[in-house]
Design a protein around this nucleic acid. Structure first.
Lengths: 221, 221
DNA sequence: AGTGAAACGGAAGAGACTTTCCGCTTTCGC
DNA sequence: GCGAAAGCGGAAAGTCTCTTCCGTTTCACT
């Protein structure tokens, strides 16, 4: 169907002042709640903290995905920007490490972002920015660092995706930055060395990644 | 699986024949269900598969912990035995790798075992075998491999615990053994090398480990 | 076989969440 | 200022699980 007629009715009509105010309030509160409890936090918790009724939240965001997208699209785009900058840094290895650290700092601080990043890998999510833009950029980092001879040659882009997911789980209230310790260890393993043998098995394909995310978190789809 | 009919605590009264038969049926079925769905699988799923009523399961194991303990004590003890053997292998580094591989093979195949191992770290769980026996054995492996000069000197026993937990999540239906790839990378990072600087941050203490397990899995306590 | 206690099954109850619905309130164009 | 329509709150209905309870069945002992 290729109708020229715009969706008119629904799309153009601006929100009433109170509705617009509440929409923003919901976004702000949801950001906070999702950061703490993840993307599956109950709407009632958001409503309670925002001091409004649950119905209001459901009316504005009938599909949870709309809320998630509204909140995290820009955050993920921010990570894409970091990745872009990483690929242009003078030293390829430093660029790669710099990217991982920046990305992890953000994911570790916000459980919602971490889960949104996972959905990025998800086949049919409409969080395509990540999948379509981040993938190639990481690939570029890998190629560059391998050409430079600092990254071991049998590492692939998905390996970095896996490590991001793993590291982002390593935080505790006592040691919020604990992930840095294991990132350091892991990076030492990624470094090209004269004596090292080939890695066992092939790097995971996208569908493997997806399955892995699912049992790493509780996310089912 | 051949578990006896110990009971005993309150009264020495032995179970009636049908009850004893069902107890064993529950254990066998629960082993299967837990392996698939983890320790939080519903009692009704166990009952359904065993072809008995839910009430029967609740009567025999009013506390889920009793069922978990009955099922996994011997499995964890098996891992302790592996650790013991690892500390006596001629080459310390090989011993350490051998232990990690054997332990992971078991944990990856059984989601219930993986979660039971996590509870091993848990402060007030009555799954003390792991905490009290496994810890010192891993410590011994670390000391031995460091004395040998193969394991980097700033690695600690808890670091291995963390790596076990991380790796045990890396499986997919497509590549069930994918963990081996990342274990290889991680091990390369653990190896002592002349050029390496010190690791950032200190290794996690037991309470940190516990907190980490909790948000790695969905387990709350 | 007969009897009482133990055990069984599964329906009903309890709880925690999620989602909808509807009477009342607020906004906005006139 | 007024009225129609959009929006609001939160109680109620719907879902999903986990757990208990009780009438019926099975077992062990005489």
């Amino acid at each position: 169907m290729t109708t020229q007629i715009p969706e008119g009715d629904e799309a153009d009509r601006p929100l009433r002042a109170d509705a617009a105010r509440n929409r923003q309030l919901i976004l702000d509160t949801a950001a906070e709640v999702f950061a703490e409890h993840g993307l599956d936090a109950g709407y009632d918790e958001i409503a309670r903290r925002a001091g409004i009724g649950v119905g209001t939240v459901y009316r504005r965001f009938p599909e949870r995905d709309e809320l998630v997208q509204a909140l995290f699209e820009s955050r993920i785009r921010e990570i894409v920007t970091i990745a872009e900058e990483a690929t242009t840094r003078p030293d390829p290895w430093d660029g790669l490490v710099w990217f991982l650290e920046r990305a992890l700092e953000r994911q570790v601080a916000d459980r919602g972002l971490k889960e949104a990043m996972v959905r990025t890998v998800d086949q049919d999510a409409h969080m395509t920015i990540g999948r379509e833009q981040l993938g190639p950029l990481i690939e570029a980092m890998v190629v560059r660092a391998q050409a430079d001879g600092t990254l071991r040659s049998d590492v692939e882009a998905t390996d970095l995706g896996v490590s991001l997911m793993l590291m982002s789980s390593i935080t505790t209230p006592q040691q919020p930055e604990l992930w840095r310790r294991y990132l350091a260890l892991f990076l030492d393993g990624l470094r090209a060395r004269p004596d090292q043998g080939p890695l066992p098995l092939i790097a995971p394909a996208d569908e493997s990644m997806h399955a892995m995310m699912c049992n790493l978190h509780g996310t089912r789809p």
